[in-house]
Design a binder for these strands. Sequence first.
DNA 1: GTGGTCTAGACCACG
DNA 2: GTGGTCTAGACCACA
Lengths: 127, 127, 127, 127
Amino acid sequence: MDASLFTVQPASPEPIYRQIVEQLRRLIAGGQLGAGDALPSVREVAGFHAINPMTVSRAYGLAEAEGLLERLRGRGMVVAATGRNVQTQAQRLTLLEPSLLMLARQTRELELPADAVLRRLARMLES
Amino acid sequence: MDASLFTVQPASPEPIYRQIVEQLRRLIAGGQLGAGDALPSVREVAGFHAINPMTVSRAYGLAEAEGLLERLRGRGMVVAATGRNVQTQAQRLTLLEPSLLMLARQTRELELPADAVLRRLARMLES
Amino acid sequence: MDASLFTVQPASPEPIYRQIVEQLRRLIAGGQLGAGDALPSVREVAGFHAINPMTVSRAYGLAEAEGLLERLRGRGMVVAATGRNVQTQAQRLTLLEPSLLMLARQTRELELPADAVLRRLARMLES
Amino acid sequence: MDASLFTVQPASPEPIYRQIVEQLRRLIAGGQLGAGDALPSVREVAGFHAINPMTVSRAYGLAEAEGLLERLRGRGMVVAATGRNVQTQAQRLTLLEPSLLMLARQTRELELPADAVLRRLARMLES
DNA sequence: GTGGTCTAGACCACG
DNA sequence: GTGGTCTAGACCACA
């Protein structure tokens, strides 16, 4: 399994388990994880990122409660088959809204010209 | 003083005191707060945002330890005269880097096309 | 852990949290605390000295911001591995300079002969 | 009058008014200020050190309450004629005791050899 | 168990 | 009026 599926930043103020849940939400909404896809095991993720297994387990549990994942006995967690997995582009843009608003606010506070920020972001998105 | 200088989101996972410190860092780097400018008093900020004065005080204290602010005994806090206050546009773009990286990662996770995101951000930055 | 690592004087005009930070600075500079050493927990120190846990926490937090300590999530604070931990004798003498200057000034104000003061200090340092 | 009689450190955690009172106590105990000697006016001291006149006034008031100073109408403050002004060397060494203890503790925390500290202090006391 | 954040409120130092 | 220190206690995140 690909334990590097997630990006984890232990120094972030955002709790690790929530970082994982939100990445799951986006990967499923974007279609990179489709219904029935298997997830890396708790131990793999924990080992790879040097975090506590309980933290990963908690993230998976919350994602399950949210209907994103399903627990298959003996096979681990897989992406749930709820039908509304892949979302339209407009819906996915909505999931990005909070981060966009934060970026816009910081740009204004830093008195940065819009085009400089847009150019920098465009270059990032190319690679 | 202008107690609305800061934007505070109590629901954010980022601690309030750190939200304030980071806004201060950006406002000073961007030149919107210049050396010697007086800051709104702890009590004003606390009252305006309905948060505890100690939370604001903690932010001001950390900003002081960081060399961003100076305390004038009995008169309040002012922006420090450290010389490195206003930064070049390139330096300010660097302060935006973490948020840009986060946005780029989320865009990729959501499988969103770059131009849709850039257009949405551009519209936000216009207003 | 050894909660008696610190000496705390609640009656001193120097804030308790700063007393702790400065002792940490000296204990690390002197090598009595080495990189990776675990510190007594906030609750232990607070209980031992009958002070509020938040006061200790504040000291640890400042020491962390200063790069003296590192936080291991869920496991407590340890001395940071920054490389500049143990300092030369000359550097450590520099940390003593402010206290020496204060003592010299007071000696002069009291019109005390140097040798009387030096003899008194020598006897103290023996024990 | 000599407004430079006092040394004032606004950044010290010790309140300024107490810095002044304690210097007065030492200067009188050591005989550098004798009964009847006039003190610099509140305004002179405040102007010279760029501190608030109220702070100086408060120090003088406390020194008066302590019997160190006397207020002479129209002539300002003078050193009181209480007889026990100049103290024996042993008494004066006692006034130095707290600072000596602090220095000894810091020396131990820094793991500094006694002779290095004593030599540094001796050189300071010569000049 | 670890540290962290926030609150409400008392009291201090300084102007 | 300004900021600062400390307390007591609730609640959160993580192991």
